[in-house]
C-alpha cells in the first residue's frame, strides 16, 4: 500500500532523514517508535505531501507523492502532531468544512458517523476553542476519518489524552485496521505493543530496527551489535571465527569483509575480536558498536 525507498530530507545542513526505506501492506498498523526529534514527523509530512523529500521516492496506493500529490491526498486521512483546528468554529461546522474540502458524498451522514466513532457527537454544537484537549484530539481524529480514507497517518494520536481515552483511541485504531492501512507515531513504548502489528524504530533519521512488537522487545532486551570491517580475510574462515567465540549470538556477513555480530547484552567483545583478528594476520579496518545500541534507545523511550 505504501512504498518508501531511500528517503532523505535535509533542513539546511541538518539531515533529518537518512536513506529511510520501508513498505506497509494493506491492513497493517505500522508504528513509528522513536525519541522526539528522530524524524517521525518529517517522514509523515513527506508521506502526506505536505513537504517534498530531498531525495528518494514514496508511493501511496500506487501514486507518487511528488508527482501525483492530489491523488495521494484524496486517499489519505492525516492527523498532524498539532491538531489543526479553527477555534472559532463549532465541531459540526469544522467537520462540515473538511467534508466539503474533501468532496465527501452524503456529507451529513458521514459527519455523524465520524462523530459517533470518536464519541464526540454530544459536542456537535460546541465551539472548538472551548473543547478540552481530549476532545480536540478526538475531533482531529474524526476529521482524518471523515472520508473513509484508504490510508490513515496519525502523528502521536494519543498525546494529551487521559488513560481511559487512550484505551478508547487504541481500540478505535485497532478496529480501523480491517479496511484501512494505518501508520501512527509515538514515543511511548507500550503503545506500539498494544496497537501495532509492526514497528519501525527510528532514531536520528535512521531506521534502527524493524519487526513485530514481540520480536523487537525480545531483541531490545538481549543484544548488542558490533560492526567489523576486515581486509584480506577469507570470508568463511572469519565467519567461523566469530561464531566460535563465546558470547556472540549471531554473525551477519555484509559482504566485502564487513560483518555485524550480535553479542549478549552488557558484554563488550571488541578487545577479544581485535586480538583474534590480528592473530590471524588480517587487517582490522574498523571495529565499532552499531550506532546507538537498541538498549540505549529503549532507555530513552521508556524514560521520556
Amino acid at each position: 500500500m505504501i512504498h518508501v525507498s531511500n528517503l532523505t530530507k535535509h533542513y539546511g545542513d541538518f539531515q533529518a532523514l537518512k536513506n529511510v526505506s520501508f513498505d506497509v501492506a494493506k491492513g497493517e498498523i505500522l508504528g513509528f517508535l522513536g525519541p522526539n526529534g528522530a524524524g517521525k514527523t518529517t517522514t509523515m509530512r513527506i508521506l502526506t505531501g505536505y513537504m517534498p523529500p530531498t531525495s528518494g521516492t514514496v508511493t501511496v496506493a500506487g501514486y507518487d507523492v511528488t508527482t501525483d500529490s492530489l491523488e495521494v491526498r484524496k486517499r489519505l486521512g492525516y492527523l498532524p502532531e498539532t491538531v489543526p483546528l479553527y477555534p472559532e468554529m463549532t465541531v459540526w461546522g469544522y467537520l462540515d468544512f473538511m467534508a466539503r474540502l474533501r468532496g465527501v458524498d452524503k456529507r451529513e451522514r458521514r459527519i455523524d458517523e465520524a462523530m459517533e466513532k470518536v464519541r464526540i457527537a454530544d459536542h456537535a454544537d460546541v465551539m472548538i476553542g472551548k473543547l478540552s484537549k481530549g476532545y480536540r484530539q478526538r475531533l482531529g481524529l474524526a476529521q482524518a476519518l471523515l472520508h473513509d480514507p484508504e490510508v490513515l497517518i496519525l502523528d502521536e494520536p494519543t498525546i494529551g489524552l487521559d488513560p481511559r481515552q487512550i484505551i478508547e483511541v487504541r481500540e478505535l485504531i485497532r478496529g480501523l485496521a480491517q479496511d484501512h492501512t494505518v501508520i501512527l507515531s509515538t514515543h511511548i513504548l507500550p503503545e506500539v505493543s498494544q496497537t501495532c502489528t509492526r514497528v519501525l524504530i527510528i532514531n536520528e533519521g535512521e531506521i534502527v530496527a524493524e519487526g513485530t512488537p514481540e520480536r523487537l522487545m525480545a531483541r531490545l532486551k538481549g543484544a548488542e551489535r558490533i560492526f567489523i570491517q576486515l581486509a584480506g580475510a577469507d570470508s568463511d574462515e572469519a565467519r567461523r571465527l566469530f561464531q566460535s567465540m563465546d558470547g556472540i549470538l549471531a554473525v551477519d556477513d555484509k559482504g566485502n569483509g564487513a560483518y555485524e555480530v550480535e553479542c549478549a547484552l552488557g558484554t563488550d567483545k571488541r578487545p577479544e575480536i581485535a586480538r583474534a583478528v590480528v592473530n590471524r594476520g588480517w587487517g582490522l579496518l574498523e571495529l565499532r558498536p552499531v550506532g546507538m545500541s537498541l538498549e540505549e534507545i529503549f532507555l530513552k523511550l521508556t524514560t521520556e
Binding site: 505536505y50 492530489l70 491526498r73 498532524p80 489543526p84 474540502l101
Partner: peptide, 14 residues
Amino acid sequence: RMGTIELLLTAPVK
C-alpha cells in the same frame, strides 16, 4: 501560526 495550513495543504486542494 496555528498549523491549520498543514490541514489545507494535505487536503486534496491546490
